[in-house]
């Protein structure tokens, strides 16, 4: 069904194409996985070349870093509901348990506070349910307005 003219469009309608047009997200095979009351979600398929420990077959923490960063950034855009350049100020990740080999990793991120210049985001990474997280992240984003330095998606 075509979108109704009087329905306000949401910036999150663009998220799948934003992820697909980001070279590093394509390299990882990451995808946009929709949004819910828990936040904006992204997925990362399990792949042999993303393994961190060959003995256990567990995905590298570093492979998660990118979808946590990207998912958190999209949570800020979802709160803004428009495109503005944003830059990650900092990102902290706690690794709670090993990911289960063979499973897609899902990241769900929520921007719990937005100011004119900052977005504060909390995210969880999990392979089954958000209640049993593999990792948790806390990130702060600067919302820039054409600053000459430091915009990052």
């Amino acid at each position: 069904m075509p979108p109704q003219e009087d329905q306000p469009s949401s910036f999150s309608d663009m998220f799948a194409s934003i992820v697909d047009s980001t070279p590093y997200m394509r390299a990882l095979g990451a995808y946009y996985a929709g949004k819910s009351s828990d936040g904006v979600s992204m997925g990362l398929p399990y792949r042999a070349d993303l393994i961190g420990d060959p003995e256990s077959g567990v995905l590298a923490g570093g492979a998660l870093t990118a979808i946590l960063d990207h998912g958190c950034g999209m949570a800020v855009w979802d709160s803004l509901n428009e495109f503005k350049p944003i830059a990650t100020l900092d990102l902290r990740i706690d690794y709670m348990r090993s990911a289960k080999p063979g499973k897609d990793m899902i990241v769900t991120a929520k921007c719990y506070k937005l100011t004119r210049t900052m977005g504060f985001v909390r995210a969880f990474a999990y392979d089954e349910t958000i209640d049993d997280p593999v990792a948790a992240a806390q990130a702060a984003f600067v919302i820039t307005s054409n600053s000459p330095n430091g915009q990052r998606s």
């Binding site: 870093t65 902290r92 990740i93 690794y95 990052r152």
Partner: peptide
């Protein structure tokens, strides 16, 4: 890794 904290200083 138990935890990592990254500060981004420049693009």
């Amino acid at each position: 890794p138990i935890n990592v904290s990254v500060q981004y200083l420049r693009s």
